[in-house]
């Protein structure tokens, strides 16, 4: 290459490299996208069925501005309703899936999907004993850490954050469904 590069060459080479780059990436994207989407869908299904014990399939419905997932068991009977929700935790957003039985106003189960809590302290919200304690909680319970919710030692704020998210979500769901199905 000559020492003094012409402007045309500079622009041309940069443009060609960018076009090549975009072409390669379009191909890679097209190739991997179905897999990524399939994984996301499968994760979502797993999370939904996880919080609706006994359910084998679900249906997505739109109530008000909320997206609800109705889970059915293999006889086609309604098991409960699930919703994906999130709220502020100690350090970042906590995302969780909440399964509810709207007939008797009880929580079926919860599953923490993602969080940014402190490892070893707040991050223990993903441990089974913590998630399981919300099973069968009445909608009108207090949802207070250290009272009716067992707190994680050293992470009362994370515990309360999860409880608040659940409580707020229940209220939102009840508003759009008016207590009925």
């Amino acid at each position: 290459m000559a020492k003094e590069d012409s402007k045309v060459a500079m622009v041309a080479v940069l443009t060609i490299i960018m076009i090549l780059s975009a072409t390669v990436l379009t191909f890679v994207f097209g190739f991997t996208k179905p897999k990524i989407d399939a994984y996301a869908a499968q994760q979502k299904k797993k999370a939904i069925l996880n919080v609706l014990p006994g359910a084998t399939k679900y249906k997505t419905i739109q109530k008000g501005n909320l997206e609800l997932y109705k889970g059915y068991d293999k006889n086609g009977d309604l098991v409960g309703t699930a919703i994906e929700t999130k709220g502020p935790g100690f350090q970042g957003m906590i995302k969780l899936m909440l399964g509810m039985n709207l007939k008797n106003d009880k929580v079926l189960a919860i599953k923490i999907l993602s969080h940014l809590e402190t490892p070893g302290l707040g991050a223990r919200i993903t441990e089974p004993w913590f998630e399981n304690q919300f099973k069968n909680k009445q909608f009108n319970d207090k949802f207070k850490a250290k009272s009716d919710v067992k707190a994680i030692a050293g992470a009362t704020i994370s515990t309360q954050a999860v409880s608040d998210i659940i409580e707020n979500t229940i209220q939102k769901v009840q508003k759009v469904t008016d207590g009925g199905e």
């Binding site: 500079m10 940069l14 890679v28 991997t32």
Partner: peptide
């Protein structure tokens, strides 16, 4: 030998960013 000296850094960065995106999507998929 193809890349003009003056724009070499942007060219390298584009090439690198392309490989990073490939790594990113392949990891996300597999």
């Amino acid at each position: 030998n193809v890349i003009p000296h003056k724009v070499r850094i942007p060219c390298y960065i584009v090439v690198i960013a392309t490989f990073v995106t490939i790594a990113d999507y392949v990891m996300a998929a597999y």
